[in-house]
Nucleic acid binder design. Structure first.
Lengths: 229, 229
DNA sequence: TCAAAAGTGTTTGCAATACACCCATGC
DNA sequence: GCATGGGTGTATTGCAAACACTTTTGA
């Protein structure tokens, strides 16, 4: 909110629901603001858009400014326009969800932000404005999207085990999956490349590492994601 | 655009892609404006939102004002925010799609509108602004939605034949469907109530009429549309 | 009696599900 | 040697897809 100098559009904001996979569960990134109206309360990272940037660009900039998060997968979710959703005046907000691998990003609070942390998605109730609704809608969309787009990969490190991937899917859709059936399906998509590498330092049989076939993925995107988990 | 008196928000608009099923194909409602910047060109019905109305309300009002269309199914599609999408100044627009039965609505051009007509979806290329993109995105979303939500019914009269319904589905998804398989699937959803009525005045065997089980539909909406065509 | 669309079942293949044991590793 | 998660195959079921003829009606 320190962009008056840069010609911001004061009735249009962007809010981002950043999902990350940490501690074997799905978490969401919240920040604390320095200033009112939500000084010292955990909330979704958000901000006003600038006169000369697109909505996507605004989302990217806001994430970088508030929490030092870059180079992410973004998807527009919904635009929230309840008349009184913002207390001071009419502000409509465009909600995005973003997916990142928390290991790749050290969270540094940025401009106008005092803190940035990961929270379990179930522990976020009571956020200001309509942020609870926004998170909810983003979660619903993530659950849909993950079945038709291989975006789950965005949340994992480059090399991962099949069990990692399965746990990720389970934590998104909130259901237990059968190990053998999951492996069959996910390998049949042809999007995984098995590596000649294995886990190290685990006190049980070391799992094989896989990476994601970026080339096939790009093709799939062009063909409208014609696959399903 | 005649609402300056009513405190409109001049950088936020709503555009509506209204689909109707006419002449056994999917059509879309376009209007002609009286004034610039798009005087006398066919375009999507749209307008600025008022300071005291939600986005959904704006969509409803705009459809009523421009084309006398009421009581419709609405779904938010996407928000378009390219910096130069509107020539004069920065305007971000929230796109909706709407479904109506054209028989139920006589199109009357309304405020600031000189004409309102139905067009085949394939004949609409060359609309002003980013309306081509908006239509495209709405069509994609309609195709997705129709498989998981029984919104196809919104496009039909109360009583209809199974062949009507099948033709509707075919025109939305753009593929031919097998008659027997379609009937099996659609009847298995339990959303159709067969009536003791038949077509009249047709020069071939009269088809049975069905109506839609509103009660079951409402339940389904609550349960997150857990069915699939 | 002809034309035009309505209505109706069965077979086949594939994909989803359910399910249990041995393997490798570190301690 | 024991605890821990890794890794693997088969049998069953249900759903999707392909497919053609008889019925009814109006002209």
């Amino acid at each position: 909110m320190s962009h008056t100098a840069k010609n911001l559009i004061s009735n249009l904001s962007v809010d981002c629901v950043v999902f990350g996979f940490r501690n074997n569960r799905l978490e969401v990134l919240l920040i604390k603001r320095k200033r009112n109206p939500i000084k010292e309360r955990w909330a979704l990272p958000g901000g006003f858009i600038l006169a000369d940037e697109t909505l996507d660009d605004a989302a990217i900039r806001i994430l970088e400014e508030t929490s030092n998060v870059k180079n992410i997968y973004l998807e527009q979710v919904h635009t929230f326009g309840a008349v009184n959703r913002f207390p001071a005046r009419r502000v409509v907000t465009v909600a995005y969800f973003a997916l990142i691998d928390p290991e790749k990003h050290s969270l540094k609070p940025g401009i106008d932000t005092t803190d940035a942390q990961w929270f379990n998605v179930t522990e976020t109730k009571g956020m200001p404005f309509d942020h609870d609704d926004i998170l909810n809608k983003a979660l619903i969309q993530l659950r849909q999207s993950v079945r038709f787009k291989p975006i789950g990969f965005e949340l994992l490190p480059i090399k991962f085990t099949l069990t990692h991937l399965q746990t990720l899917y389970e934590s998104i859709i909130g259901m237990h999956l059968d190990k053998r059936n999951f492996r069959k399906k996910i390998l049949k998509t042809g999007l995984l490349i098995p590596l000649e590498e294995f886990q190290k330092g685990v006190s049980h049989r070391a799992a094989q590492l896989y990476k994601f076939d970026l080339h096939k993925y790009k093709k799939l995107v062009k063909n409208d994601y014609s696959f399903q988990i």
